[in-house]
Design a protein around this nucleic acid. Sequence first.
DNA 1: GGCTAACAGTTGAATTTGTAACTAACAAGG
DNA 2: CCTTGTTAGTTACAAATTCAACTGTTAGCC
Lengths: 149, 149
Amino acid sequence: MPSDEPPFDPSDFLPYLLNQAAEAAGQDFQTIYKDRYGLLRTEWRVLFHLGNYGRMTAKEIGERAAIHKTKVSRAVQKLAARRYLTRERGETDRRFEYLELTATGRAVYADLRKVAQAYDARLSARFSPEEVALLRSMLRRLSGRDRAE
Amino acid sequence: MPSDEPPFDPSDFLPYLLNQAAEAAGQDFQTIYKDRYGLLRTEWRVLFHLGNYGRMTAKEIGERAAIHKTKVSRAVQKLAARRYLTRERGETDRRFEYLELTATGRAVYADLRKVAQAYDARLSARFSPEEVALLRSMLRRLSGRDRAE
DNA sequence: GGCTAACAGTTGAATTTGTAACTAACAAGG
DNA sequence: CCTTGTTAGTTACAAATTCAACTGTTAGCC
């Protein structure tokens, strides 16, 4: 016996829809970095941030990417074990560790970056440029990382 | 040393953006069903599907909501333990189990549904009706549940 | 019937994540 | 210096998720 009240399809519920879309959109790409380099999602993100912005600390990565520090910590450990990045203690403040991609790490980054761009283009191609632009801006606002609320 | 190539900010990458938005959008609501009824996300989803569409099997739920069968199985077990739903073996085919909310389950559903609707309205209010409509339709297409690709 | 394959759902072991407590390093005030 | 508080990062333990193998049941086909 469904409810008597006006239907409220779960698939109209924004958080639900966002989730479904995010999962579906990330699926194929996930298998690429997983199968090709054995990376986990967090690892891929950390790699991506370092590749794009260069040397930075774990804390910075966590803040920029909104990843919890324990996740960053574990991802960094795995990436370091694979020689994708090097860690260097801060000289003035020894609590920090400066992370930087190795040549290997940069090569992986460059490869995945290409794939990511192509993948993004493929997703975007399903809509008009204006639609995609609006989508991006709305998603940014929803994610609360855009100071425009 | 960031890459020499044109920047490709991770936060421009659609799967990434979708993920961030989904996480942010779901956060507050998650604490509601968690704190108020001790439900896990999957449990809440199963409850919602049964509340909205009425009696159905675990398999149907899994297909509609794109939840893996083991997740559904465990969610159903917890919901049954809390007497939120009843399970009934199919008479013609005893492999199936027909799931249905109890009065308690329906009450929980009704309450959460109200909250969800209000929550959705609050999220949507940040945009124009046209924008929200477009967002929903794009998300549906991305999630691949809309046969329009 | 009796064999095999397919299917709904469950369970167990291995991964992954989340929470909280922890270590090591610095900073500020006395 | 020596407390007290804060910060960057790690670790330990519990909770959740995944993957694969498993049970019980039905269907097809000889």
